[in-house]
Amino acid sequence: MADHQKIHPVQDVEAPGTPSAPLVPRDMTISEKGEPGKDQYPPFKRTIPVTHSKPPKKRSCCCKCICWIVSLLLLLIIAIGITVGILFLVFRPKLPKFSVDRLEITQFNLTDDQNLSASFDLTITARNPNKRIGIYYEGGSNIGVWYTDTKLCQGALPKFYQGHRNTTVLNLPLTGQTMNATGLLTTLQQQQQETGNIPLNLKVKQPVRIKLGKLKLMKVKFTVRCKLVVDNLAADQNIRIRSSSCKFKFRL
C-alpha cells in the first residue's frame, strides 16, 4: 500500500468502566483550589409568579339607592333643623296662658232616676303673649270638668282668631249627667263638710293653627290641664275658687 493510514482507537463512551468526561461549561474556569469560580456562574434568578388581586366588586343598585336615601334624609333633617332654629330666633315663640276666673253652678242635683245633672258656667281667660304669632282656634274642641275619675260636665270652645299679645275672655256653658250618682253626691257632701275644699280637674283639648307672619301652618292640637280647688258645688250659690293652676302642652 502506497499510503499508510494511522488508525487511532476510538474510546467507547458507553462501555462500562470508561471514565466519562466532566461536564464543564466552556466558559467556566477552575480556580487555583480546584473549585469552580463562583463569579463565573451566570446569576440565578427565580421567577415568582405575580398574583393579581381580584377587582373590587361594584356596589349593587340597591346599596346605592339606600345610600342616596340616607344622605337625602340627613340633608332634610339638617335643613329642617336650620329652618326651625331661624324661625325660633325670629319669632321667639311662647306658649299661650290659660286661667280659670269664675265658676257658677246653675244645676247640681239628683233626678228621680238617681242620675246627677250638672250645669256649670265657666269663665276662662286665654292669653297670647307672642309679638309675631297669631293663633286660630279651630272647631272640634272639648272641655270637661272632672271630680277624681268622674266627668261631671263638658262643653266646647268657640272658633276664633287670637292676634298678637291678645287677651280673650271666654264664657263657656258646660252640661253633663252622671248615671247612678247617689254615692258620688254623698262623697262630695262629706268632703265639703270635712275639709271645706273640693278638688276639680279641668281638661281642654283644642285644635289650632299657628300663624307666623303671613304663613299659616298645619293644624295641631294642644291640651290644657287645670287643677281647681273650690269651696262648694251648691247650685245658685257663690262658688269661691281657692286655687287654680294650668299646664299647657302641644301635640301633633
Rank of each mutant, 00 (worst) to 15 (best):
T47L: 08
V50Q: 14
L76H: 05
Q5Y: 10
M28K: 11
I77N: 00
K64S: 06
P42Q: 13
T47E: 13
Q40S: 08
K57R: 09
E35Y: 15
K45Q: 15
T18G: 00
P55D: 12
I86D: 02
L74A: 05
P49A: 12
W68S: 04
L89V: 12
K64M: 08
C65S: 14
G81L: 03
S71H: 09
A15P: 01
S53L: 10
K57E: 10
G37P: 00
A15L: 03
K58Q: 06
R46K: 13
A79C: 05
E32D: 09
D39L: 09
K54G: 07
I86C: 11
D12I: 09
M28C: 07
V70L: 07
T51G: 08
P36E: 12
T29D: 07
C63Y: 09
K38Y: 15
I69Y: 08
I78D: 01
H8S: 11
P36Q: 10
I80S: 02
A21T: 06
K38R: 13
W68M: 03
I69G: 02
V24L: 03
I69E: 02
Y41F: 14
I66F: 12
T29V: 04
L76D: 00
Y41N: 01
C63I: 04
C63E: 15
Q5L: 05
P43K: 07
P43L: 05
A79S: 12
T47I: 14
P22F: 15
A15E: 11
D39N: 07
P49N: 14
P49M: 08
G34H: 08
K54Y: 03
H8L: 12
R26M: 00
Y41E: 02
P25C: 00
F44S: 02
G37Y: 10
I80H: 01
L89D: 11
V50D: 13
I7T: 07
I48G: 08
K45E: 15
P56T: 04
W68G: 03
C62F: 07
P56Q: 04
I82C: 08
I78G: 04
P9Q: 05
K38D: 15
I86Q: 06
G85C: 04
C65A: 05
D12M: 04
H8Y: 14
P22E: 15
R46S: 08
S53F: 11
